[in-house]
Amino acid sequence: MAMNGTITTWFKDKGFGFIKDENGDNRYFHVIKVANPDLIKKDAAVTFEPTTNNKGLSAYAVKVVPL
């Protein structure tokens, strides 16, 4: 089920960042999981599918909501 969130941290040079989800949890995401990576920036609103990996909470099918 899709969730909403906000990008809180973005490491462009490393290709990953973190999203604060609607429950207040931080989720890892990688640029290859983003549909529109050219719009990635700190504080951008996103929708995504929540999941977990071996390191904890993460996100896939991430879409940055255009302003």
Rank of each mutant, 00 (worst) to 15 (best):
M1P: 13
A2W: 12
A2I: 15
A2V: 14
A2Q: 13
M3R: 06
N4D: 05
N4H: 15
N4E: 08
N4V: 10
G5F: 02
G5S: 02
G5H: 00
T6V: 14
T6F: 13
I7L: 03
I7Y: 01
I7T: 00
T8N: 06
T8H: 09
T8M: 10
T9F: 15
T9C: 12
T9Q: 14
T9L: 15
W10L: 03
W10Q: 01
W10R: 00
W10I: 04
W10C: 03
W10A: 01
W10H: 02
F11C: 08
F11W: 08
F11K: 05
F11I: 08
K12W: 08
K12G: 08
K12T: 07
K12E: 10
K12N: 08
D13N: 12
D13G: 10
D13C: 10
K14V: 06
K14T: 04
K14R: 13
K14A: 09
K14I: 05
K14C: 07
G15F: 06
G15L: 06
F16I: 05
F16Y: 14
F16H: 05
F16R: 02
F16A: 03
G17K: 01
G17F: 01
F18E: 03
F18I: 09
F18Y: 10
F18M: 06
F18D: 00
F18R: 03
F18H: 04
I19A: 00
I19G: 00
I19Q: 00
I19E: 00
I19C: 02
K20E: 08
D21C: 03
D21R: 02
D21I: 01
D21W: 02
D21Q: 01
D21P: 00
E22W: 07
E22F: 06
E22M: 08
N23E: 06
N23T: 05
N23G: 04
N23V: 07
N23P: 02
N23A: 08
N23H: 11
G24K: 05
G24Q: 05
G24P: 01
G24R: 04
G24Y: 04
D25M: 10
D25V: 08
D25G: 06
N26M: 15
N26K: 13
N26Q: 13
N26I: 15
R27M: 02
R27Q: 01
R27H: 04
R27I: 04
R27W: 10
Y28K: 03
F29N: 00
F29T: 01
F29Q: 00
F29M: 03
H30W: 06
H30C: 08
H30S: 13
V31S: 07
V31F: 09
V31L: 10
I32S: 15
I32P: 05
I32C: 14
I32M: 15
K33I: 12
K33S: 15
K33Q: 15
K33T: 15
K33M: 15
V34K: 03
V34W: 03
V34Q: 03
A35I: 15
A35F: 13
A35E: 14
N36K: 04
N36L: 04
N36M: 04
N36Q: 06
P37L: 05
P37K: 07
P37R: 08
P37N: 04
P37V: 06
D38T: 11
L39E: 12
L39A: 11
L39V: 07
L39P: 03
L39K: 12
I40Y: 05
I40S: 02
I40N: 00
I40V: 09
I40D: 00
K41N: 07
K41M: 11
K41Y: 08
K41S: 09
K42V: 15
K42R: 12
K42F: 06
K42D: 04
K42N: 06
K42H: 08
D43F: 12
D43K: 08
D43R: 09
D43V: 03
D43I: 03
A44L: 06
A45W: 12
A45F: 12
A45D: 08
A45Q: 13
A45G: 07
A45L: 14
V46P: 00
V46W: 01
V46T: 02
V46L: 01
T47H: 07
T47I: 12
F48T: 00
F48A: 00
F48Y: 02
F48Q: 01
F48E: 01
E49T: 15
E49R: 15
E49I: 15
P50I: 05
P50C: 04
P50R: 03
T51K: 12
T51D: 10
T51N: 09
T51I: 13
T52H: 12
T52M: 11
T52D: 07
T52G: 11
T52I: 11
N53I: 07
N53M: 08
N53T: 15
N53W: 10
N53C: 10
N54P: 12
K55E: 07
K55L: 10
G56M: 10
G56F: 09
G56I: 08
G56D: 04
G56V: 07
G56H: 08
L57S: 04
S58I: 08
S58H: 06
S58N: 05
S58G: 11
S58Y: 08
S58Q: 10
S58K: 04
A59Q: 01
A59C: 12
Y60R: 15
Y60C: 13
Y60A: 15
Y60M: 14
Y60Q: 15
Y60H: 14
A61T: 05
A61L: 07
A61H: 13
A61V: 06
V62R: 00
V62Y: 01
V62I: 14
V62D: 02
K63T: 14
K63M: 13
K63G: 03
V64Y: 03
V64E: 02
V64I: 10
V64P: 03
V65C: 10
V65G: 07
V65F: 11
P66G: 11
P66W: 10
P66Y: 10
L67E: 13
L67P: 14
L67H: 13
L67W: 13
